[in-house]
């Protein structure tokens, strides 16, 4: 945790950040949902899928890290 670069390489730091940020960005797409809970949930789901896909790309190009 000492250096900022060490912090940035920690998935525990940027993963929640990406999830929250992406969800906020994607939420308007599901504005027509009956409840705000559902629109948030769907936005989170969509964003989670994108993040998961990004994770898979990391695995594909740097399999040694896993």
């Amino acid at each position: 945790m000492a250096s900022p670069s060490g912090l940035l390489s920690k998935p525990l730091f940027w993963l929640p950040l990406m999830l929250v940020l992406g969800t906020v960005l994607a939420a308007p797409l599901f504005g027509s949902s009956p409840s705000p809970l559902q629109s948030t949930a769907l936005a989170l789901l969509l964003n989670g899928t994108v993040v998961l896909s990004g994770y898979l790309f990391v695995v594909i190009f740097q399999p040694e890290r896993f």
Binding site: L52, I60, F66
Partner: peptide, 25 residues
């Protein structure tokens, strides 16, 4: 640590997973 062949196979499995993730999503 993973052997070279295991690494190559991991890549293939990750790609298949990615393909199916896109197909389903």
């Amino acid at each position: 640590s993973k052997t070279p062949n295991e690494i190559a196979l991991t890549v293939l499995l990750a790609v298949l997973t990615q393909v199916f993730l896109i197909a389903v999503a």
